[in-house]
Design a binder for these strands. Sequence first.
DNA 1: ATTTTATGTCAGCCTTGTTGACTTTCCAAG
DNA 2: CTTGGAAAGTCAACAAGGCTGACATAAAAT
Lengths: 166, 166
Amino acid sequence: MAEGSVGGETLLFLTDEQLRKGIEAMFFAYRGFTADPDRILERMDYGRAHHRALHFIHRSPGTTVNNLLSILGVTKQSLNRVLRSLIDDGLVESRVGRKDRRERHLFLTEKGAELERELSDAQRARMRAAYRAAGPAAVQGFRTVLEAMMDPEMRRHYQSMKESGS
Amino acid sequence: MAEGSVGGETLLFLTDEQLRKGIEAMFFAYRGFTADPDRILERMDYGRAHHRALHFIHRSPGTTVNNLLSILGVTKQSLNRVLRSLIDDGLVESRVGRKDRRERHLFLTEKGAELERELSDAQRARMRAAYRAAGPAAVQGFRTVLEAMMDPEMRRHYQSMKESGS
DNA sequence: ATTTTATGTCAGCCTTGTTGACTTTCCAAG
DNA sequence: CTTGGAAAGTCAACAAGGCTGACATAAAAT
């Protein structure tokens, strides 16, 4: 396969062809990764941007707009458009900060939590199936490579909740 | 960690929390995955869609528009717009099919191959660094999980060139 | 009192998806 | 041979969701 042994250590032959396969794997897999939520979102009048907002508000209830901006890596105008519709539709609640009243703290309403659940159930189902099919060792490797692929700032966001639920 | 042993077999505890980490890993890693090519594309007046077209024409020289459509999963109108600019700019050559003159066979010109190389060099550099950091076993697992996550049709496209260069 | 920070909003632009309508080409059934 | 349908490509128009720039407001910090 793609490995060889030298002095007891296993090495990878990182040919361009090997790397190209990794690149295409990312491309095709990401399509699958978003496919199920996308189908649900289409029924409402929402898009992937709404899903991302719901996801991270769910993950960190009470997060501020600014914090969300740095996680999502978009402009405030872009996020605001999405947030506006979610708030107007009663899926997200925006509360003025008590300590710093310039800040807005974001929470899912019951209705928002419901949609978030539906979306992440669909996404988790696929992830669970892939994990089961691949096995525990593969899952470990999957997470390790993905983490190594992140930009440092994104890795911080990722790790900041690393083992919070395990 | 996230594993346990029962009768010599290792099992995964697929808690929602574990799965959520996988989901976020995909999200953050994909951002890193596209970041370097995106920076290059910005300098030209191209976007990610152009990169994808160049990539798959490079991979399969002479491919038809229809074949490209099924790989990329967009409408022909959407692809056509991108293809048009690449052809007009002299990066892609479109040859009328000899057997079926409705078909167009696509090839990279020297100029197109050059840009493709620059883009994939950048993307491969990050992939190579991640592979090196994670190690061979992790790489194997990475590819296995990603493949399990694909839609069946995409998996076919992926596997169709599986070991062509290894 | 002034400046900085956090947020929101308006306007306008670009990329890249979409659908619908149309042409050209090919092929096959009559 | 003709005709009708399927396949490939093109043009036009629209929408989502990125972007920048400008500006308003409120609150915190200096």
